[in-house]
Design a protein around this nucleic acid. Structure first.
Lengths: 104, 104
DNA sequence: CCAGAGGTTCGATACAATACGAACCATGCA
DNA sequence: TGCATGGTTCGTATTGTATCGAACCTCTGG
């Protein structure tokens, strides 16, 4: 059962949902940018420079969150995105590595 | 440039297209079934038991083919599906392994 | 206290994806 | 030659997704 903010538990993360979340160019870009950061790094949702309105951006982060790819943490005014690296690694070993090393 | 049957060359295979092709439950099922076969194994398109009409089945195999995941070979009357294991492996190392070992 | 910044939600719209049946094109076999 | 089998293509209905703007909430900083 997902928590109050919509984050699924590790054993609830579905492969199809993860793949569907990654199957959008903007969301893939976000995940790939998070992959080159240090493990556990946080980034502002606005810092990715997505060329969409803020409601659309909110939608994409919701998809990533509900798929289990990212964790969103409230930091007072703003909200930080953090890749759930170890969670995905433990459930789908090698998947994020493959996404990280994929040709641009 | 894809060949006459719509198969992209190895360096034309796009990560987003592969992920989008895998993001459908039926297509993921097909790929996972091919992954447990011996490398280079062929299977009838009808042998997967997909619960859809033949026109829909044809559509899904077209998506897999155009994404570069499978190769379709004419065998006289019927058509065989073959996973492009080494092609995907060389372009996105570890991706198919992750899909193969993912929990059901 | 109030204005602005960051996010979410809602409703609407436009587009893409899935699905089907019917028509059609091959191949293989009687 | 005729016909069944396996696939593709086409048109279409249905559903889902991406997108936006407007309204609203919450926190921060004057």
């Amino acid at each position: 059962m997902p928590d109050a903010e919509g984050h699924p538990a590790v054993d609830e993360i579905e492969l199809v949902s993860v793949l569907a979340a990654l199957a959008d160019p903007l969301r893939l870009e976000v995940v790939q940018k998070l992959l080159v950061e240090a493990d556990g790094a946080e980034r502002h949702c606005t810092s990715f420079g997505l060329p969409v309105s803020k409601s659309t951006r909110s939608h994409h982060f919701k998809v990533l969150r509900e798929a289990g790819l990212i964790k969103q943490v409230d930091r007072g005014n703003s909200r930080m995105a953090q890749l759930r690296r170890s969670d995905i690694d433990s459930r789908f070993p090698g998947l994020l590595d493959a996404v990280a090393t994929a040709p641009a």
